[in-house]
Write a protein that binds this DNA or RNA. Sequence first.
DNA 1: TTGAAAGCGCTAACAC
DNA 2: GTGTTAGCGCTTTCAA
Lengths: 341, 341
Amino acid sequence: MDDTTEKLSKKNGKKITISDVAEALGISKTTVSRAISGKGRIGEATRRRVLEYIKVNNYKPNPMAKGLANKKTYNICWAVPAEYNVYDLPFFQRCMAGVCEVTMATDYDVLLSQVYEDNISGLKRIVDNKKVDGVILARTLVDDQSVKYMKESGIPFVVIGSTPENDVIQIDNDQINACCDFTSLIVKKGNRHLALIGGSSTHVINVSRRKGFEEGLMISGLKPQPELMFVDKITDRDIGNAAMDAVSLGADCIICMDDRICYHTIMRFRKENISIPGDVKLASFYNSDFLATNQPAITSLEYDPKELGKTACKTLLKMIDGEAVATKIWLGYEISMKESV
Amino acid sequence: MDDTTEKLSKKNGKKITISDVAEALGISKTTVSRAISGKGRIGEATRRRVLEYIKVNNYKPNPMAKGLANKKTYNICWAVPAEYNVYDLPFFQRCMAGVCEVTMATDYDVLLSQVYEDNISGLKRIVDNKKVDGVILARTLVDDQSVKYMKESGIPFVVIGSTPENDVIQIDNDQINACCDFTSLIVKKGNRHLALIGGSSTHVINVSRRKGFEEGLMISGLKPQPELMFVDKITDRDIGNAAMDAVSLGADCIICMDDRICYHTIMRFRKENISIPGDVKLASFYNSDFLATNQPAITSLEYDPKELGKTACKTLLKMIDGEAVATKIWLGYEISMKESV
DNA sequence: TTGAAAGCGCTAACAC
DNA sequence: GTGTTAGCGCTTTCAA
């Protein structure tokens, strides 16, 4: 934007309004509005004249006024967990990048809300204050306050992940099948005693992964061994201990539910001089860049978080426009076999 | 909120407006408005009656209408780098948490904008569309388009970091002094050949850290050795190679400009069987959770990113309210000596 | 101390 | 095809 344009777009230092445009062109505000929105009948000539003028003069409609008039905000809410660890970060960041990429191509902007497992007041405020036209919940819990609240609120929303609640639009990778496939493939590689180390079972994703793991064993003709399944391991200490226990109990391969668990397992093994894959094999249900540079390379299940974000956002935008959408949208996954198994 | 309140707060399923409140109380909208805003004269009795009523009925003023009337949006923009390699950095997330914490205690919400080094169209759109009352730039570049654009725009903004541009409100840790202190302390520990590995010199922070490093050597009576200073190392490969070169050139200690660099250095050394601190010592100019659990613990400089976010946000809010603020606000740092040096 | 009325910038019936 | 008019929900003079 050069200086000339800059100056033209203001009127005594203030932004120009639709009235200024109308007046300058000697037509009514309605006509200008129609030219811009494309709604209603309007002569092709006038339409072009208006469009040309607003382009030259860099006129931008005021979203506040527009919002007030048609009861829309042109904002969506990206609700991310406030409690997370570094290892979850890449996931949410990539999802968010997907969301932003989609909104950039539309009239929408993204309002941020941090939600806690036990405190969703931030989300509530944004929704109650009518500051957004829809919301994306970045993760789901087994018993999820945000989901319940959003259902009551009546405004469009989607979740990234799955939920037991009915009638909720969900965008997810098919965790159960993915983990089932992954597990059975590892069994095919000759491993018979698979251990599982997982995080909090308040998270739907952890429950699903565990389920997939068990199914994977079953279809391989193995029985899940409860003593080799360690769940709700939150601290790095607990994770490390679970890993050591798995080894003492004779596990030949440990599957970690996520990268954080995998990372702490590796650290503990390094400390205890347990070699991968010599003493025990190792795999992870999710691969981020953290593990990407590890030695040895970790066998893992890979998803595309950015695509999740994009799909979630596109779906939400459709809902806001009143279009029908599928309740459940599944995205793919890839299995990446490496030296660690 | 129980069901009764829930129902009271709606009128045929729609949110109640200021008119509804006025009507119900048999007073004018003006009076209701005054009771809420606290501006203008109003009888104590009526004021309390109104406040009581809106509380019971859960009335929330519509920010769109409010915004249109007094030309405010009650949103601020949090502009973060969109580059892929910063996605995983906890730094920006923690800053953001600070920003959100502050806004939560006010009427403001946070609008997100991803900015690229060479493309700030997202920021421009948000500002041009008047969707925010102010913006926080999460990092600064040596030649920063966003800063220049924001200066022109005329709307309040602050930067986290430093900038050569004049009259820009900056919130930063004193990187130069911090890195200088840190470097000289490491020299005092008996190290004579310090290598530096740094990221892009388009970032102000990297330039400052390098400067601090050089000053630290000088005040310790050492001369910076150009061959031991590796900058603009972006990819994990380049970083690893620089680290290997530093070792072959006889460095006794390597200082990494940030965690990502430190992480990749560690990974490479692990691969090449170079021991820390046995073969070479290692330190980082910034410590995040990345390194927190590393073995051996990494000597590092520690900042408080959340505090940066909080301070930046508070400062911006003051500016929006027309208060005067200091141009440069310095936050502290701590040196944390660990086994790696 | 309170209220009537105008206006913020835009949209959408409803006329013409 | 275009304009008039009445809002959207709130704030703010200006009177009373």
